[in-house]
Amino acid sequence: MYRIRLHGRGGQGMKTASRIIGSAFFAEGFEVQDAPRYGAERRGAPIFAYVRASLRPILERGVIRRPDLVVVADESLVQVPAAGVLQGIDEHSLLLLDSLEPAEVWQERLKLQGPVLTMGSQAEGSSELPTVGARCAGAAARLVGVISRSALEGAIREELAGLGDTVVASNLETALASFDAFASDEGRVCPPEEAQLAPHTAPAWVDVPHDAAGISAPDVHGAATSVQVRTGLWRTVRPEIDAERCHGCSWICSTFCPDGAVLATPEGVPRIDYDHCKGCMICASVCPHHAIASVLERDAS
């Protein structure tokens, strides 16, 4: 069985990518299971989707614990623990990153035993482009080695049919280029032998103790504990304040920030709380002196 996990941010089209791959497998005669995994989806927040494909009926369900292929549409997710990009990766898993940095750098940085590939074709700011999902799907299709170019094309036409000819055409172009670019890596994804029963590791079950209701009720006693959540990791662009141009009217940018992420010194000089700024850029749009610039996150210092 093929087990593929795709990671991206809300809005990058990972669900669509998983459906394209699923439909392409299905067209090739495979049994398929594909699903997105999200709670309350927020633009920019990490999400993932997965695909299983097998020539026999699929009985497994839910999260893929030991993936054969992990596709990452946004390299910045690797450092986000909650995104779980590296979960269950072992020496047999192939990691494909959309990144300008070479594979060897990632291999070394992440200290991975298994193979790493990157998609170097990333254009400027392309993780925001609507076709990033198609690029991922095209690459994944080639890497598994059992999906033909025509099956991929058919799947894209099917999944994007409602979006109009222009969208279909640009996604097709991207996906097929990506498919062609990985010709030399065709079939690199190797599903392992199915796990045997014995000897299995017994789960470390625990008897859940009785705790007093003051502890065991879902109450938060700490104040403003949400500041521990670094929603700054959602950001793909960031506001940067030009100190020369800033007139120190921080009540403006601060008031219009939905997240309270523009802080002010006692003198009224604003600064950005990058731990929590989600990159909505409202501050830049309301700044009367145009003192706040929009900088791509990966270009930021």
């Binding site: 927020r42 500041v227 997240d259 802080l263």
Partner: peptide, 17 residues
């Protein structure tokens, strides 16, 4: 208007909410 806020950041609301 207060420019430091009582409400903590880090909530799951959409960017630009």
């Amino acid at each position: 208007l207060p420019s430091t806020h009582l409400l903590g950041a880090g909530t799951a609301m959409c960017a630009g909410c």
